[in-house]
Write a protein that binds this DNA or RNA. Structure first.
Lengths: 121, 121
DNA sequence: GCCATGCTTAAGCAGGCACTTGACTATTCG
DNA sequence: CGAATAGTCAAGTGCCTGCTTAAGCATGGC
């Protein structure tokens, strides 16, 4: 944990907080100012700004200040990164399960790779 | 945050930690005992057990103790929950962008729903 | 120019989280 | 029966997080 956080790290951590997910969902219906985001939330404005900074560091929202109002926009493509991470792993596991299935369906006499822990009943 | 954590909450929080993701990835190549999981990790065994508890509360791994060895198994379907959450939101946003695209392509004289902040210039 | 608006900055605080060590229990093996 | 192995439990530590309040600083409308 003394390591600097990676990309997927910041993403998952940012999405791990319910307040931030709520912000993300609200931002899904269009860009909004900081106060517009903060108003429905049960906390102070600086707290919301801190959440927004976490989301921005994760790349999930981009902000732009014009005049005295900062407008926040959702960066939806960033979710592709998360989805990619998930489906990559899922595919790997499914391949493994497929191979396991083949072995179970047609067990050649000595192709057990590893003494898998099997309960001896 | 004084709220009790929801399902997706526990999932995203569990996956938000690099050590836990590493455990998940290692478990992707088959079930393993606690010490087998702990050995490659640069921390004490109790620390690993605590990570495993977080993963178990999230439903991402299930464990089973037979004799003195506890075997941990990955619950891959749990990632479907995360993927579902993501793609549900993404679809909603894409629908919105589609509608926005339609409006921009063929603007009927009075169907602007909201004064959306659009950068001047 | 003046006041309201919209943020920003700084400091501080409570609780959570990721660890540690040390002592203990339960199982297997020689 | 020991002794090694596998995990458990409890307590404690330090850092990180999610807040707070209070003050400050621009911008915009009158």
């Amino acid at each position: 944990m003394l390591n600097q956080p990676t990309d997927i790290d910041r993403l998952l951590h940012a999405l791990g907080d319910p307040t931030r997910r709520r912000i993300v969902e609200q931002l899904g219906s269009g860009p909004a100012s900081v106060t517009a985001i903060a108003t429905p939330l049960p906390m102070s404005l600086p707290a919301v700004v801190q959440h927004l900074q976490v989301l921005e560091r994760a790349g999930l929202v981009s902000t732009r200040k014009v005049g005295r109002v900062r407008t926040c926009r959702l960066e939806a493509e960033r979710l592709d990164t998360v989805e990619a991470w998930i489906s990559a792993r899922r595919q790997a596991w499914e391949r493994r399960l497929d191979r396991l299935g083949e072995v179970l369906a047609d067990p050649p006499p000595d192709s057990r790779p590893e003494p898998q822990p099997e309960e001896p009943s």
